[in-house]
C-alpha cells in the first residue's frame, strides 16, 4: 500500500486515492500513418516493463484527477520521486 505524494495536491496520500496509468514516456507517435506496422505495434502493445527504478504514470482519481509521473522501484516499491509532466519534461530538455 503505497503512500504517494501528489505533486499537485502536495500531500502524501494513500494509494487507494490513486490509479496507476501505465509506463511513462510511451509517447503517441506524431504521425502514426508514417509508421510501419511493427513500429505502430511497438507503441500500442510493447512495453519496457523495467525491473528496477522506473517511471510510470499515476492519476489522482479520488483527488485532483491530475495525471502525473512517479519514479518507483519495481523491485522494492520505493517511490523515488513524484513530479508533474511539466517538471520532468523541463528537466529533460534542460
Amino acid at each position: 500500500m503505497f503512500s504517494i505524494n501528489c505533486p499537485y495536491c502536495k500531500e502524501s496520500r494513500d494509494q487507494n486515492e490513486f490509479s496507476p496509468a501505465g509506463e511513462a514516456f510511451v509517447a503517441r507517435p506524431e504521425n502514426p500513418e508514417a509508421l510501419s506496422d511493427e513500429e505502430w505495434a511497438d507503441y500500442v502493445f510493447y512495453r519496457t516493463n523495467h525491473k528496477g527504478d522506473h517511471w510510470e504514470q499515476w492519476v489522482h482519481t479520488s483527488g485532483c484527477r491530475k495525471y502525473f509521473l512517479v519514479k518507483r522501484s519495481t523491485i522494492t516499491h520505493e517511490v523515488i520521486e513524484e513530479a508533474t509532466f511539466a517538471e520532468v519534461y523541463s528537466e529533460k530538455i534542460s
Binding site: P20, H50, R72, T74, I75
Partner: peptide, 14 residues
C-alpha cells in the same frame, strides 16, 4: 491483480 508494474511478490492490502 494490482494495476501497477512490479517484480516484488506482494501487492496491495486493498
Amino acid at each position: 491483480i494490482d494495476g501497477y508494474n512490479s517484480y516484488a511478490q506482494r501487492g496491495s492490502a486493498k
